[in-house]
């Protein structure tokens, strides 16, 4: 196994863990706004780590370009979508969870 493969494997595993963490957080966190933070782990760290991990095991340049384009798209669109969502929810008056409140 070459160094690149080991590195790629490590990135992939870290990405898988981040994705899993995001999913668990989506279920465990108490309200909408805190769940956005959990989803953010999947969207930024998880996606970035997995795509970088795949990037280290490409064999042609146009695969690499496609991976980079996906990475760029996700880095641009996911925070924008999240921001629009949070903004809309706030304008709609979705209540904010404070410590001690029941889960919702």
């Amino acid at each position: 196994m070459s160094v690149l493969e080991v590195l790629s494997g490590a990135l992939l595993i870290a990405g898988a863990l981040a994705v899993l963490t995001g999913g668990v957080g989506m279920l465990r966190f108490p309200d909408f706004y805190t769940r956005i933070h959990a989803a953010g782990i999947t969207d930024s760290a998880g996606a970035g780590l997995i795509l970088l991990g795949l990037l280290l095991r490409v064999d042609t340049w146009n695969t690499a370009v496609r991976l980079l384009i996906i990475l760029l798209f996700l880095a641009l669109t996911s925070p924008t979508a999240t921001h629009i969502l949070a903004h809309a929810a706030r304008r709609d008056g979705v209540p904010m969870w404070r410590k001690g409140d029941p889960r919702r």
Binding site: F32, I50, L51, T63
Partner: peptide
């Protein structure tokens, strides 16, 4: 509420993208 659902569907979409990419590598079809 609807916002939790939209958030879930949005994240699901991100995961689908990742899944498609990973599946492409698994089957050797980039």
């Amino acid at each position: 509420g609807r916002y939790n659902r939209i958030l879930a569907v949005n994240t699901f979409g991100t995961k689908t993208v990742l899944f498609v990419a990973v599946a492409g590598f698994l089957f050797g079809r980039p």
